[in-house]
Structure formats: structure tokens, C-alpha cells
Design a binder for these strands. Sequence first.
DNA 1: TTATTAACTTTGAAATTCAAAGTACTTTTT
DNA 2: AAAAAGTACTTTGAATTTCAAAGTTAATAA
Lengths: 99, 99
Amino acid sequence: MKNFIGDLNKAFESRVRLGMMSILMVNDYVDFGTLKEQLQITDGNLASHIAALEKLAYIEVRKQFIGKKPNTSYAATKQGKQAFAGHLDALEKLIKQSI
Amino acid sequence: MKNFIGDLNKAFESRVRLGMMSILMVNDYVDFGTLKEQLQITDGNLASHIAALEKLAYIEVRKQFIGKKPNTSYAATKQGKQAFAGHLDALEKLIKQSI
DNA sequence: TTATTAACTTTGAAATTCAAAGTACTTTTT
DNA sequence: AAAAAGTACTTTGAATTTCAAAGTTAATAA
């Protein structure tokens, strides 16, 4: 009976950030509006989760204009992907030992 | 790009409760001291997480004496195992779509 | 010029998590 | 017999986290 919870990354404990990273693992540059829609949260809430992941350098921001509209997009950094993969690893181990 | 975070169970967002349930999925009746040692938390903290899961009827309590020492043990209920399995399912989907 | 849109920031409240200390009851040690 | 220790808590309060709502900025559209 081993204990894997020590390998879980605190940054990904929240379901919102779990969802965000999951989306950003397979999509390069997803914009604010899309994230908001996918995660079904208010923009203030999303902005603060983004800030948390950005502070850890797990995601990066790209600001541009599409046509004449401002568009902010987010992508997982290499570090972010690595960290998230590690978290998923820990989750998988936990799942396996739970079966 | 589907979104699976809606299927995650809020009761299992905390790593402590995640760890507890993971232990109780494969071990029938684990006692307070063992859980405390495995999870590396204070007894007050453990007690409150236990209370949370008990309130949801995800775990049940058995109080007995072993020799002359009081011994309190916990087991996952059927509902608890079901709920946890559902949570792990959601996590697995999230993991799969993140690869 | 007023309204709208995008992407925030700020504020504050609610919820969560946690450690520390206290408690009750018993057993062990001195 | 008295003091110390163990088990399993409960209570308290503080720190952290999460969240929604409202306000902000800057640009565009009506």
C-alpha cells in the first residue's frame, strides 16, 4: 500500500486548472473566450486561474488582433506540459492502485 | 475537444480525500493511525476529512477494542466506492484526452 | 455619441484547509 | 496512587483558495 499523493501537483488540484491544462495539452493557443466557454466559469474567475498558472510559468500568453478585435490566447509551456504530465502520472498510479 | 471536468466529484478534489479513498478502495477497514501515517497529516485534519466523507456516506466507521486499546477503523461504503470509481473514470478520460 | 465587446482587475464574501490546543477516556509507568 | 502517555477525536481560529460581481480600459460598431 503505497502512497502517491505526495507526487500530486498542488497547482492542478483545482478542477478548473485541471481542465485548462487538459485543454492546453492538446491545443496550441486557446483563446480566453474559448476557455471560458469550455470551463463554464466567469471571466474574473478564469483570469485568476490563468494568473496562477502564468505565475508558475506553466502557461504563456499571446496577445494579438484578429481583424480588429483583440484576442488573447494561452498555451502550455514546456515546463507546464512536463509538470502536468507528472501530475497525470501520479493520478494514474493512484487510479491503478485503487482498482 | 470535450470537457470532462463536470464529471469530477467535488468531494475528491482534495488530495487528502483522494488518498484516503484510494487506500480504502483496496483495504477493508483501515484504522485512524494507519491513515494518519499514510497521509502524513495531523489527527485533527484527518478527523475533519473523515467527517466530510462520512457525512456523504462514502465511508463508514467501526469502533472496537484491540486488546485494551481503542481502535477506530474506516471502510469505503458501496456508494463511496461507486462515487470514487466515477471520479476516477472522469480523471481517466481527462488523462486520455490530454495525451 | 452611446453602446458593445474583450479581457481583464479589484473587491469582498464564502468555502476550504489546516495546525494547534484542548478534551475524554483509558492504560501504562513510576 | 499519581503522573504520563495513547487514541481519537472536537474546537478554535487563521491562512489559503475559490468565486462572482462590479468596475476598468481600450478599442470598435451603431
